[in-house]
């Protein structure tokens, strides 16, 4: 185990050496990684796709004498094999059949679901909250004035701020009207403000993500490999 851990540590350091400058050690680690990944994926694709998705179901269908299942599996496999026709210029056109089946099926399947997920439900989320109450809720604003506190302020402003933000950012990206139009001009500044907050949050999260990866590697080196090395050397 120590040998593998040590190899992992050396490769990690080789990758980090790029921070100093590009060098042969970094190149070696990079190429080794790409080569290993490709080799690993070839084996996995064979064992997890060819065997599990073609050979296993066909043999189970044969054992159980499920003729219809067997026929459908064989037909599907043959159609799938037509993809390989792309390697020959002469019969390349045949590969369009499996492609058209795949694209046709998935377009039909995905269009409604994607539209509902990414547009309809999101629009609804800009109109009402998860309890079905309108986001522009006058009662909540009234509650704030009756009982001013941070909580009531948050409840009163969260909805209107969200609705306002969505509208001004949509207007900002509406390029069919000249940007000197009064409506667009009005929306420009607040839209930029919203966008900057969005980019700032994304940048903060991105930084956190990158540092987490570095912490993960350092944790491996100093809290896993180093104790193991000490234990092995110390007996």
């Amino acid at each position: 185990m120590l040998i593998w851990y040590t190899i992992a540590v050396l490769l990690s350091l080789a990758i980090f050496s790029f921070l100093w400058k590009d060098n042969p050690l970094y190149k070696f680690a990079e190429h080794l990684f790409v080569g290993t990944m490709v080799g690993y994926q070839v084996v996995v694709v064979f064992s997890q796709i060819i065997m599990r998705k073609i050979v296993d179901p066909i043999s189970v269908a044969l054992d159980n004498r499920q003729i219809l299942t067997l026929i459908s599996l064989v037909i599907a496999t043959l159609i799938g094999l037509l993809f390989l026709a792309r390697f020959s210029r002469k019969v390349e056109w045949v590969s369009r059949y499996p492609i058209s089946i795949t694209v046709g099926f998935w377009s039909g399947y995905a269009i409604v679901a994607s539209f509902k997920t990414n547009i309809l439900t999101q629009i609804r989320g800009t109109v009402v909250d998860d309890l079905g109450q309108p986001l522009l809720n006058g009662h909540l604003i009234g509650d704030f004035f009756k009982n001013p506190s941070l909580k009531t302020l948050d409840l009163a402003t969260a909805g209107p701020l969200l609705v306002f933000g969505v509208i001004v950012v949509l207007v900002y990206f509406f390029f069919s009207v000249k940007h000197d139009h009064p409506m667009v001009k009005f929306a420009n500044k607040p839209a930029l403000f919203y966008l900057m907050i969005g980019f700032g949050a994304s940048f903060g999260y991105t930084f956190m993500g990158r540092i987490s990866l570095f912490i993960g590697r350092m944790n491996f080196i100093f809290n896993e490999w180093w104790p193991l090395l000490k234990q092995t050397i110390g007996g």
Binding site: G125, D130, A201, Y205, T206, G209
Partner: peptide, 17 residues
């Protein structure tokens, strides 16, 4: 989710998806 992707998924939380 990774921190990098987190901001992308907040709208789905707001809509209870």
């Amino acid at each position: 989710t990774t921190a990098v992707s987190a901001a992308e998924f907040y709208p789905f939380l707001q809509t209870d998806q």
